[in-house]
Design a protein around this nucleic acid. Structure first.
Lengths: 197, 197
DNA sequence: ATTGTTTTGAAGTGAACACTTCAAATATAT
DNA sequence: ATATATTTGAAGTGTTCACTTCAAAACAAT
């Protein structure tokens, strides 16, 4: 009964995601987004409300598609030893961060920034997701400890260590480290979590 | 023979450093800097040339004062085992990142951002310094290997691992992790570098 | 006191940006 | 064909920003 959109919502969000991922939140202007999506500013505001809301939708889509394997891996965590599980998690993240068909690094971390350099609006969304990851890892390590496997440090510390490593990997990828090197770093970090190797 | 500056250069740079450290490069405006230093925009441009040049001076001062211990530690590296040396390095960095008398995290990493979210002008300076750290670590691990100590991974990989860990620690500090927890993470990472513990 | 040099405050410039407005365009349902 | 509901392009708004201009102010040396 009404005029249809010139581009499906999902495709528009994906193009926005790539831009945010590549240039960051603040450095991506509405004009840039409009050009990439192929519409004017008014269409963006009509469809998404604001730059910030579009960014949130882009990050959600990122988590649901590009980074979807993380949730699947947590669901399958019982099939792995600690070293295997963390190794799989970190390696697959490295594969994503060094995938040449998308911008380098982690979209959430690179697009939103962090701390002082955080892109104000973007910070809140991405901080939530980072916090979720840390508590998921914390829960994981606690359950491992409960089962009697020997961890090399308390669950809380290992969770922070792994989150820190993930952030480091994302930034190393952005600064040009090779996939091969980063996989080696990932495996090194994974092996350090358990005393049973 | 001429009108003196209203504030010594070093003090002005220190105030600028704190601001950049706290808010990042882009979010710190010339007006902000002027207010903090106690002068108008024209004085800043007269004294420092541009926002970017002031930022560079601030980062150089940061390296020469707050983060000076890094160079000293590398100079004394022969007095430590690998685990001790990396442990000292990471722990002292954590002390700096969680010092409540200065903004959280590493000034260079937080103020300049990285990758996509990098504050354009700031990126180049900080990237150079990060690269220097990685090659210093690389050299260190190579010399250790040469001396016959057993490393848990190749020098190149360990160097990247440590740099990644440092970046992770800075961000964890910014997001509110306690000094105690981060010291534990630092020690865990340090122990993972050598097989002789 | 006068001179010479530099700093400083006040005002201003042009560009970039997020966001708005609204009439015209475009499709569907009748 | 016409009515209806939504999208769209073009133009514009107000703000923020890095940076400039320049005459007055502040000091040291003479």
């Amino acid at each position: 009964m009404s005029r249809p959109r010139s581009i499906p919502e999902k495709d528009a969000i994906e193009r926005a995601l790539i831009l945010f991922w590549d240039k960051g939140y603040n450095r991506t202007s509405i004009a840039d987004l409009g050009e990439a999506i192929g519409v004017g500013p008014s269409s963006i505001y009509n469809a998404f409300g604001s730059k910030h809301e579009l960014f949130e939708k882009a990050m959600t889509q990122y988590m649901g598609t590009h980074a979807d394997f993380v949730n699947q891996l947590f669901a399958d965590s019982e099939s792995f030893s600690t070293t295997e599980f963390i190794g799989e998690l970190l390696s697959k993240l490295v594969m994503l961060y060094t995938d040449t068909s998308t911008p380098p690094g982690c979209a959430m971390m690179q697009a939103g920034g962090s701390g002082a350099a955080s892109d104000s609006q973007a910070c809140a969304v991405t901080l939530t997701m980072k916090t979720n990851l840390e508590s998921a890892l914390h829960d994981y390590f606690k359950s491992i400890k409960y089962k009697g496997e020997k961890l090399s440090a308390p669950p809380k510390i290992l969770a922070k260590f792994v989150v820190g490593t993930i952030r480091g990997l994302s930034q190393l990828a952005c600064d040009g480290s090779s996939r091969k090197d980063l996989i080696a770093v990932a495996n090194h970090a994974a092996m350090s979590c358990s005393n049973m190797n």
